[in-house]
């Protein structure tokens, strides 16, 4: 089923307007491009429903077919439907909605986020080894930085915070800026190909406008 002509035209028109608005000052263009951006938010909001439909389908099937761990899926469905109903019927500022948000959602979120600390420890232990010259540079830089950021570094060597601050101000800025400049060019190139319909993997097609090997 090939249906790419109209979508690509839509991409070109919308993208063209928004891009032109970046360069050219014209009141109608400004209005249109702002309107397009608003529409983007609205369409995205509809997409949220698609995501939820996917969740519902997968977990309903699991519950129905009594697959392994099906009862977790059942709980998921109940919470999903119940909490959505609460939010839509009583609004998200209602105290019941906020209670669930503050006492379940937030601690769950903060806890999972804090996994990062544990994972960083195990990743540092495993990865920061002097296997190659590059790995050694990475390791030394990370060590100096860690020592410079906490009181114990200062106990070991008075100027440790100064060293850390230098690394973060000079070479780190330079490295990240270099990467950013390169990536900007890549982003412009790829976006341009998408905008002109050359790269069309977002419609399931291949790049290059034709079949690729």
């Amino acid at each position: 089923m090939k249906f790419t002509g109209v979508p690509i035209l839509v991409t070109m028109v919308v993208g063209g307007v928004v891009l032109l608005d970046f360069f050219v000052k014209q009141s109608n263009l400004i209005l249109l491009s702002r309107e397009f951006m608003n529409w983007g938010v609205i369409i995205s909001a509809f997409a949220t429903g698609l995501g939820a439909a996917n969740l519902l389908r997968i977990h309903a099937k699991r519950t129905q077919l009594r697959r392994t761990d099906w009862w977790y899926s059942g709980i998921l469905l109940c919470v999903l439907v119940g909490y959505t109903a609460l939010g839509v019927l009583k609004h998200s500022s209602s105290s019941q909605y906020q209670f669930v948000f503050n006492h379940m959602f937030q601690p769950l979120s903060a806890t999972v986020f804090s996994f990062n600390a544990f994972f960083m420890t195990s990743a540092a232990y495993r990865a920061f080894r002097v296997r190659t010259v590059h790995a050694t540079v990475l390791l030394v830089s990370a060590l100096l930085m860690m020592l410079g950021r906490v009181g114990i570094g200062e106990v070991l060597y008075k100027d440790m915070p100064g060293i850390a601050s230098w690394i973060s101000r000079v070479p780190t800025t330079a490295g990240f800026r270099g990467i950013t400049i390169g990536a900007a060019l890549g982003a412009i190139g790829l976006s341009l190909r998408v905008l002109t319909g050359i790269e069309r993997s977002q419609f399931g097609g291949t790049g290059g406008g034709g079949g690729a090997a």
Binding site: R193, E199, G207, G208, G210
Partner: peptide
């Protein structure tokens, strides 16, 4: 990446 893998002229 896509240019590297697909090697289409425009890419």
């Amino acid at each position: 990446a896509s240019a590297y893998l697909e090697r289409q002229p425009v890419q």
